[in-house]
């Protein structure tokens, strides 16, 4: 896997990193990192408030391939405290190096499961006594969860990673059929309006459902409205 620096490609990276540093300031954390694995291209995409020195070192050592704080929490639904991972040989190795960059091995990772099955991860660290850490974790965990999903959704909807995933390409016929379905028209009526058979309308709607990864038509309409394909009237 290679690390893609989302920000180097997009002018929004500065905004995402600012979001993370604001989060650190607000919640009394040292560092925050966001990453997502694009399972299609097998690339890790991310940005972080870590120093450039650590980012370069991390990439040079190819830690992204072994770092347990990156891989294991993605298999969880709950935030994973790094304490649970500290027995791992690879964990010890990564954080032996991290210490030289003043990064503590005390932190947690929050997995974010997205609507298309993609998984993002926010990791935060804080160098403090373990008592302070436990209190801090309890105080900020809900806010971190919310921030994690907001950031993930924003990144996914920004026109970089997963743009193709989030912006399915609908044909104009498909949009028309769905727009009228959303307005409550029957498939026979829609067929008359568009001068196509009702069977074709059904097929268009079925395509839309597939493209929007929706199992039901109401679900597809909901997603299409969110994405701006259909406008509620």
């Amino acid at each position: 896997m290679d690390i893609v620096n989302l920000g180097a490609l997009e002018k929004t990276e500065a905004n995402f990193t600012t979001f993370l540093s604001d989060l650190c300031d607000k919640l009394e954390l040292d560092f925050a990192t966001y990453c997502a694995v694009n399972t299609v291209s097998d690339q890790v995409i991310g940005f972080s408030t870590y120093s450039d020195g650590w980012k370069e070192h991390y990439g040079a050592q190819r830690f992204q391939n072994t770092d347990p704080t990156l891989h294991l929490p993605m298999r969880s639904i709950a935030p994973v405290d790094w304490q649970c991972l500290s027995g791992h040989e690879d964990f010890k190795k990564v954080f032996e190096h991290a210490r030289d960059f003043n990064i503590a091995d005390q932190g947690l990772s929050i997995p974010i499961h997205g609507p298309y099955g993609e998984i993002g991860l926010i990791s935060v660290t804080r160098d403090c006594s373990s008592d302070t850490w436990i209190k801090l974790r309890k105080n900020v965990i809900s806010e971190l969860q919310t921030a994690a999903v907001t950031l993930h959704d924003t990144v996914m909807q920004s026109d970089s990673l997963g743009y193709a995933l989030r912006r399915p390409h609908l044909s104009s016929r498909e949009c028309e059929a769905l727009q009228r379905t959303a307005a409550g028209k029957s498939q026979i009526d829609i067929g008359d309006i568009l001068t196509i058979s009702s069977r074709t309308v059904e097929v268009h709607v079925r395509f839309v459902r597939t493209k929007l990864c929706a199992l039901t038509t109401p679900q597809a309409v909901g997603r299409a409205i969110t994405m701006g394909f259909v406008h509620p009237k």
Binding site: I77, I112, H113, G114, P115, G117, I119, V149
Partner: peptide, 8 residues
């Protein structure tokens, strides 16, 4: 069984 509601 517990799942997140943000994903599937």
């Amino acid at each position: 069984r517990i799942l997140q509601t943000t994903g599937h």
